[in-house]
Simulated assay, not measured.
Amino acid sequence: MLPSRGVEQPFLAEGIPVPQGHFAVLDDRLDFALLDTDFPITLALLQARTEELLADHACEADADIRRGHRVTGLTEHPGEVIVAVAAAYVVGCDGTRSTVRAAAGIDFPDTSASVYGWIGDVVLTDPPSAGSYSRATADGLLLAVPLPGGLHRLAGHSPGDVRADHPGELTLGELRAKVTAIDGRDFGMHSPAWLSRFSNARRQATRYRRGRVLLAGDAAHTHMPAGGVGLNVGLQDAMNLGWQLGAVVRGEAPDDLLDTYHDEGHPVGAELLEHTQAQTALMTAFTPDGRRLRSLLSTLIAEQPTFARALAEPLSGLSVRYPFRLLHAGRPVLLDFRDEPGPATPGAVVHHGRPLGDRPDWAALDTALIRPDGHSADVTPRGEPDQHP
């Protein structure tokens, strides 16, 4: 998504590339070289810095960002939503405790927590070998990932974390004890920048749209964190909704286009919750039988590339690739593969040429209309009349 808007370089310049991902921190990693992308990596970059870079890009596009304001409620009227100021639409991106979602009356049914994990960003005087590191024993599961700024993120679960009640605030001493129990060492951890807990509580909004109020990110779906999938899907929410909302506000599309945001996004969120719940079960499989199950699945990842790719694609959020530069303007793109170009498509960037050589499925098409978020909206098979308006 970032290259499709031409803004990936600041992220690549600061992030730490990790050429793998993980499913439930199994011993065998998912090789992202299997994925159809120019960026087969996990990019380790703090969310706070990610937000700063996205805000910089938004300000360059003349967005008006106002910090330090807390929404306490809203009132919807015909033609507007009142949130201290009038707006044609309001998008609630205000997290799991979303005031916007509650004020709009959108249900957020929950599955209560049954597991609490722990996480800490700390300095290590004796860090593990370069890259990400993991260890799973009967005493728990540990994942260590390097972060910019000399930090490492330590995260994991211990048998005592399988509980419904919140264990209280995490301390550096508790983190040290848990890591030592699992790995036999504490890596010389000190100077914590962040200590926290997370749970496997699962919630999803029943609707991503109600009238002129829409939801995105954690306000729409919350789950146990697992390899950055929540951030990936949250950005997908924003990108999908962004082009649709822009088209409606500019009068280029009818209001009911926004209904498709829920229709498209809600199943993706449901799949995300399913994957993270499955990973929770595997990450807390501390019994001998549970560890045998982890070993079996890990072996399948190592020996069956098709299985590994089937797990890696949902984790990475990748499925298709288009020429990124054509999407920089945030407009629809018409790929015209005919020898003689057809009539111009109003509002779309038109690219004329043959399909990419390593994409044989495209050879059966005359045209493909690509949405601003990089997904195909419509195609015309070879020899059929062009149906694009």
Score class of each variant (00 low, 15 high):
L143N: 12
G150I: 03
S98L: 01
R70P: 00
G150S: 06
A155C: 05
E80G: 01
D94F: 04
D64C: 00
G120L: 07
L151G: 12
P148K: 04
G160W: 05
P159G: 03
H152N: 03
G150W: 07
D107N: 09
I119P: 00
A155N: 02
S158Y: 09
F108R: 07
P148Y: 05
V115H: 13
V83M: 03
G117N: 05
A87W: 03
L124A: 15
A155P: 00
D110W: 04
L124Y: 00
G156P: 08
I119W: 06
H69D: 09
A164Y: 03
A84F: 02
L124H: 08
G160F: 02
A164Q: 09
D126K: 03
R153S: 06
R67G: 12
A138G: 15
G95A: 10
A63T: 13
A136C: 10
L147R: 12
S158G: 13
E60H: 07
R97M: 01
E80W: 09
H69S: 10
A63F: 11
E80F: 11
L151I: 03
A113N: 11
C93L: 10
R135Y: 00
H77N: 05
S132L: 10
H57D: 14
W118S: 09
H77V: 12
V81C: 10
G150C: 07
R70E: 14
V71H: 01
D165E: 15
E76S: 13
A103Q: 07
A103E: 12
P78H: 09
L151Y: 08
R97G: 15
H57L: 04
G95K: 07
P159M: 07
V71P: 08
V71S: 08
A144G: 02
D56S: 14
C93K: 02
E80N: 05
A84C: 10
A86R: 13
P167I: 04
H57W: 11
V90P: 11
A58K: 03
G79T: 09
A138P: 11
D126L: 04
G68T: 09
I65Q: 00
T111M: 06
G131V: 06
R70M: 07
A86S: 14
A86G: 13
A113M: 05
S158T: 15
V115S: 02
S158E: 13
P128D: 02
D165W: 06
P167W: 01
R163P: 09
F108V: 11
V162P: 00
P146L: 03
R163N: 07
C93M: 06
A104S: 11
G73V: 04
D121E: 12
A144D: 08
H166L: 06
P78A: 01
P146F: 03
L74Q: 11
G160M: 05
H69L: 14
P146C: 07
V83R: 02
T75R: 14
R101F: 12
E76L: 04
V115K: 06
R66Q: 14
V85E: 15
A102E: 15
G120V: 08
G73L: 01
V122T: 12
S134C: 02
A63Q: 05
I82V: 14
G68V: 12
R67H: 15
Y89Q: 04
D56K: 09
H152C: 05
A88I: 04
V123M: 03
R135S: 12
D126W: 00
R66P: 01
D64H: 11
I119N: 06
P128T: 08
P109N: 09
D139G: 14
L142K: 01
T72G: 08
L124F: 13
L151M: 01
A86F: 07
